[in-house]
Design a protein around this nucleic acid. Structure first.
Lengths: 163, 163
DNA sequence: GCGCTGTGCTTGCAATTGCAAACGCGGCGA
DNA sequence: TCGCCGCGTTTGCAATTGCAAGCACAGCGC
């Protein structure tokens, strides 16, 4: 599993470069990498780091995310969705709010695409019923109020769907 | 400018790990990297490649994109079109999910604007200064469940209640 | 006291990245 | 014919990544 799509990322870069009708050296200069290295990348002999990849994306004027997906570095079906990017870029939100929105969004995505194939056999790092965590910040509780009825009630009864 | 945020990415990882209440070795194993290396990454002594970053993101169960942004590997050249537009444009969401997200977002905006408007908006969303900046209690997922398209899915949550 | 286990950190070392220099090839002007 | 320029490629080499092994410290049972 060391270098699965390294070839395809190289091919992809070469395609994009040729479509842009620029030479290898030109792209190398635009991207700030050496020509030999770019050559090796395009032929799949080297596995460029994300930094280089980012530079190349800039040189090609394409989205780095697209390139990362091609490289299998965002293999998460974590998608062409700009929602997360937009949330993170929104300066009006607090970090907490940002996290809430992103997490909600991701949970939506997870549910929509049903099951995952991740075979996590060891740690389950994320919050696992931790008594130390606060019960519920009311920030988003208020936000959820229109949807989840009983908040001011002090009792969030999850009917576990299936009302 | 080569490695300005290398430290911050390490800090960010360490924060996320500690919030998840797992040890360095646990995360290392979950992410499939060596403990010493993870230690060095967290302290900013090493600049992890995107592959490693991706693994760590998986181990932390957070978005790789978020981590890449933190690492400065995905620049903000991605059009930060406003959140609502992004949500509307996301074809992966159901109409109901979309509405929920938009509504939450708008209520967040209202709160933030009402509470303090004088904060500089162009500042980077550094969040470490927040004492109660927890990632996200998972109870809210349960609260959202009734609204999140409970179609072919039956595995989410339900374990968080009284076991 | 001793040993065991868990935490994070330090130390060499193989493998890899990424580059400067140089190479072979083809086209073009003198 | 030669020389020159641009193309992509090959070849060493410094710097870095990433790891196995081991270290220092703290807590717990004997």
């Amino acid at each position: 599993m060391a270098l699965p799509k390294v070839g395809s990322i190289g091919e992809y870069i070469r395609e994009q470069r040729q479509q842009a009708k620029i030479s290898l050296r030109q792209l190398a200069e635009a991207a700030g990498v050496s020509n030999p290295y770019l050559s090796q990348i395009e032929r799949g002999l080297r596995k460029p780091s994300a930094e280089i990849l980012n530079q190349i994306a800039k040189g090609l004027r394409i989205s780095s995310q697209v390139l990362y997906v091609q490289a299998g570095l965002i293999e998460d079906r974590e998608p062409p969705s700009d929602v997360i990017a937009a949330i993170r870029a929104d300066a009006h939100l607090s970090e907490r709010q940002r996290q809430v929105l992103i997490d909600i969004y991701e949970s939506f995505r997870k549910e929509t695409r049903a099951e995952d194939e991740q075979t996590s056999q060891n740690a389950r790092p994320r919050h696992a019923s931790d008594p130390d965590d606060e019960p519920l910040p009311e920030e988003y509780l208020a936000a959820l109020e229109p949807y989840a009825a009983p908040s001011s009630n002090g009792n969030v009864t999850q009917e576990t769907k299936e009302g």
